[in-house]
């Protein structure tokens, strides 16, 4: 894996993600839709960056490109010093497995597996032995406040608890970058607040960066910075405490 071997939490204090002139076109010919139009922006280590904007502006596409789950047509994406644009598909897959944690809108927990088993998946993918993976998963579940619930399946847990399991799964292999797609959209106000407090704390870990895509204005106040997207471009990146202090409503 080119350029990925040296990265990890705590190895740097500067730029976490650099996106340069990234374009993405879906479809061909007359049906082609340009979702990203030369996007430029940076996310820093130790921060929680939110990507916001109206529906269809390209937030999820940009998140997918940063996460390495979607190939882009043009430009460069560098994650903790590793250029995704220079990697093969299998290298990108391996990179994701080692260095990126995911929190999905609909949790995406496997309903037939217990919480511990769900959390242990990233470790198992990285070749950690089952017993060790489960022990670390249990410890991670305790850290996110789910003591003694490791044996429960997602259907036995509330929405907030399921999202905590998803967070534990995203963090258990100690990734440098945590990608969150609408993490609070399926949660009530109180659970959403708890989850975001947790994510805010996660982002404080040295050498880590959390990028959140959302249009839930209730959680804007948890961002360190916000990247506002419009029509396939990042229109503005700014500190949030100035603009969104009043968003705590």
């Amino acid at each position: 894996m080119r350029g990925a071997a040296a990265i990890g939490p705590g190895t740097g204090t500067g730029t976490a993600v650099r996106v340069e002139r990234v374009s993405k076109v879906f479809g061909r010919g007359e049906a082609a839709v340009q979702a990203l139009k030369g996007v430029d922006f940076e996310a820093r280590q130790g921060e929680l960056l939110m990507i916001v904007g109206p529906s269809g502006c390209g937030k999820t596409t940009l998140l997918s490109v940063i996460a390495g789950t979607l190939e882009f047509n043009d430009g460069n994406v560098t994650v903790f010093g590793a250029g995704l644009h220079g990697m093969t598909r299998s290298e990108v897959t391996a990179f994701r497995g080692r260095h990126i944690g995911f929190i999905f809108q609909s949790f995406n927990l496997v309903p037939t597996l217990s919480a511990v088993e769900n959390v242990s998946i990233p470790l198992l993918i990285n070749g950690v032995a089952r017993r060790e993976a489960e022990a670390r998963s249990r410890a991670m579940l305790e850290k996110v406040g789910l003591v003694g619930r490791g044996g429960d399946t997602p259907l036995q847990l509330s929405g907030g608890q399921q999202q905590r399991v998803a967070i534990a799964r995203a963090l258990v292999h100690e990734p440098s970058l945590v990608i969150c797609d609408e993490p609070t959209s399926a949660l009530d106000r109180e659970n959403g607040r708890r989850v975001m407090e947790l994510m805010h704390e996660v982002a404080r870990a040295p050498g880590r960066c959390v990028i959140v895509v959302t249009h839930d204005s209730r959680i804007f106040r948890f961002a360190d910075r916000m990247a506002e997207m419009d029509d396939g471009r990042v229109a503005r990146v700014h500190e949030t405490h100035e603009t969104y202090e009043a968003g705590d409503h």
Binding site: T69, T93, A94, R96, R98, I100, F102, V110
Partner: peptide, 15 residues
């Protein structure tokens, strides 16, 4: 289970 396989793929499970 396609979504779950997709999630596994996103989390680094290769083909």
């Amino acid at each position: 289970n396609l979504r779950h396989f997709g999630a596994l793929k996103a989390m680094g499970a290769g083909d």
